[in-house]
């Protein structure tokens, strides 16, 4: 159970996000610089987006597990329109990717990508997660693996 003060901290950090008891751990994770994916304690199945029950065995006993390591881009688009935000340039193009982490291949995680030209963001690109401050808000992004090692 998350404390009332911790909930208030998470809500204050993400003023525009729709946050409820099911995805609180996701946003709390971003505040800690982590990507947390829900896993069922009973049958060990991963699922995303975060829900209230395991869609495989219907157990309500879930844990949000921090995942690390590399991921592979599976879906990608570059947006030239969208909700205006400081730090997003829709003229240049705002990439959105859905990736599969090596340790959680069964679900995809969606975020923007940085560190390479939009045209280079294709299926199969190897990336690593990073939480950056975009207009002061902790934001998950993916960065190409080679670029992150430079």
């Amino acid at each position: 159970m998350t404390s009332r003060s911790r909930i208030s901290e998470v809500l204050a950090a993400f003023p525009d996000a729709i946050i409820d008891a099911d995805n609180l751990a996701w946003f709390d994770g971003l505040l800690h610089g982590e990507v947390r994916i829900n896993r069922c304690r009973a049958c060990r199945t991963w699922h995303n987006p975060p829900g209230s029950r395991c869609p495989s065995c219907l157990s309500p006993s879930l844990e949000a597990v921090a995942v690390t390591g590399a991921a592979t881009v599976d879906l990608a688009t570059v947006l030239h329109t969208g909700p205006p935000r400081d730090g997003i340039d829709y003229v240049e193009g705002h990439p959105v990717v859905s990736v599969c982490f090596d340790e959680v291949p069964a679900v995809r995680v969606t975020a923007s990508a940085i560190g390479c030209a939009p045209a280079q963001i294709r299926r199969g690109l190897r990336v690593v997660p990073e939480v950056v401050a975009r207009a002061g808000i902790p934001t998950l992004v993916f960065r190409p693996l080679e670029e992150s090692q430079r």
């Binding site: 688009t77 959105v96 969606t110």
Partner: peptide, 24 residues
Amino acid sequence: SPNPNPDSMAGTPGYAAWAQRYLD
């Protein structure tokens, strides 16, 4: 009600991503 999350596949961005996947 446009999706307020600019980093999401929900709604129209998802169609674009699956269009790209189809072409690829």
